[in-house]
Design a binder for these strands. Structure first.
Lengths: 226, 226
DNA sequence: AATATTGGATACTGTAACTATCCAATCAGC
DNA sequence: GCTGATTGGATAGTTACAGTATCCAATATT
């Protein structure tokens, strides 16, 4: 299809599509001549994905570029790739010098793996500092409730990954390999695993947040009487 | 304290504080003369809260104004107030005409209260459309896993509200009153309840999101071997 | 009295994400 | 083949947001 049809089918203005092409987040169509390029369904899907990441996940263009780049050209190590992807997701916080006392206490209280190089650790530290300053600090009791709810949820996410994505190419990382056959997975399959992990993180968070808000509403509605 | 001290103690530039005063999200200090105003710890806390909402919850100034306005002058009906607060939180989506098939199916599958006037319903619809388009639709099985995890979490949140916030002023809304004494709660106590509910929603979401990311990391780390 | 600071008003800056215009080279229909 | 519409590509302009910076007359402070 031509660019005008791509625009019509996606609902995105031609000028905006050109902008995305310029920014390098949408691949150019197959050139059919000096003034014609051919776009296909892949372009349409990519365009829709860009809009979802921009509007729903609220990612700036630069971070969309990073995320799509990871999907298109994943690192050998999926663990590292996921780390990079999470760095590209809001909220954007810097490490802050290496000390994350609140996050460390919380994670160790839950018995989870504490790793101060992981962006989510910094994000947790910052989030905990904020609720503390607002006068509603996270109690151990509430932390237990959250941990008990979220860990099984996360396990479900990982279990549902295509072909046990987490094990992909473990051999290349020095980590023990759980599933030997994973090391022989094709680049396409690895890309699918990265895609699942990265988009699952970026796009499922709005789902989780919306469900949590609706759970609050449900409880409030029940309390007020049906 | 004077404005320069407020700036020093909060780490926010004087010019920015003046900007917040202009925008009406930070109350002016008590005037001590034509060129002097007195700021206290309330101003300092408010300033820190503004920064948390802006940087962590990524709220635009206009929405911060809305949220703070709800805390300062809550509606009689806390249920309505919470709805307005959630409208001010990202992601910003419009109703879209009244049809929310994906959200409706999901909520009814969970047996929760479906209310198409609630912003979180529109947000869920949009989020579900996005994951669907990205090729990783929400299965009923995953929905069950999420619902089973999130509902108890939300119950914990509501139970922890100061004085059973949800029941506050139920008498004024026409809804049945669960706790009769709640109707006599003072304006200050009601404001505290709204504050807990609104900030709990806005500021705890980053905590939940960070914990979910860390749970994924924990699981990945365990799978790859300690 | 001299110097610094303040509140208040106004103007300016920088960034991000588009949006619009222009142009020469086609392409599509007649 | 001719003509008007469309395209890719480049460049420039717009809008919104969130601050920053400057000015000024009126105090505070020393």
């Amino acid at each position: 299809m031509r660019i005008s049809e791509l625009a019509r089918r996606s609902g995105v203005p031609v000028a905006t599509i050109k902008f995305y092409l310029r920014e390098g987040i949408l691949p150019t169509g197959a050139a059919r001549g000096a003034t014609q390029a051919d776009y296909d369904d892949d372009h349409l899907n990519r365009l829709r994905l860009i809009r979802s990441l921009a509007e729903l996940a609220a990612l700036p263009i630069a971070q969309i570029k990073t995320v799509l780049g990871l999907i298109d050209h994943p690192d050998a190590d999926l663990f590292t790739t996921l780390g990079k992807a999470i760095s590209a997701l809001p909220p954007y916080v810097e490490s802050g010098g290496g000390e994350h006392p609140r996050a460390r206490a919380a994670i160790e209280h839950l018995g989870w793996t504490y790793d101060e190089t992981f962006p989510a650790t910094w994000q947790l530290e910052r989030a905990l500092a904020a609720v503390e300053e607002a006068g509603i600090p996270l109690t151990d009791e509430r932390l237990d409730a959250y941990g008990a709810a979220l860990h099984p949820m996360a396990e479900y996410d990982v279990a549902g990954a295509p072909g046990g994505a987490i094990d992909a190419d473990a051999s290349a990382t020095g980590h023990p390999v759980i599933d030997r056959s994973a090391a022989e997975r094709s680049a396409a399959a690895r890309s699918a695993a990265v895609r699942y992990a990265v988009l699952g993180t970026a796009l499922y968070e709005p789902v989780v947040v919306a469900l949590r808000r609706l759970a609050h509403q449900d409880i409030a509605a029940r309390r007020l009487g049906a």
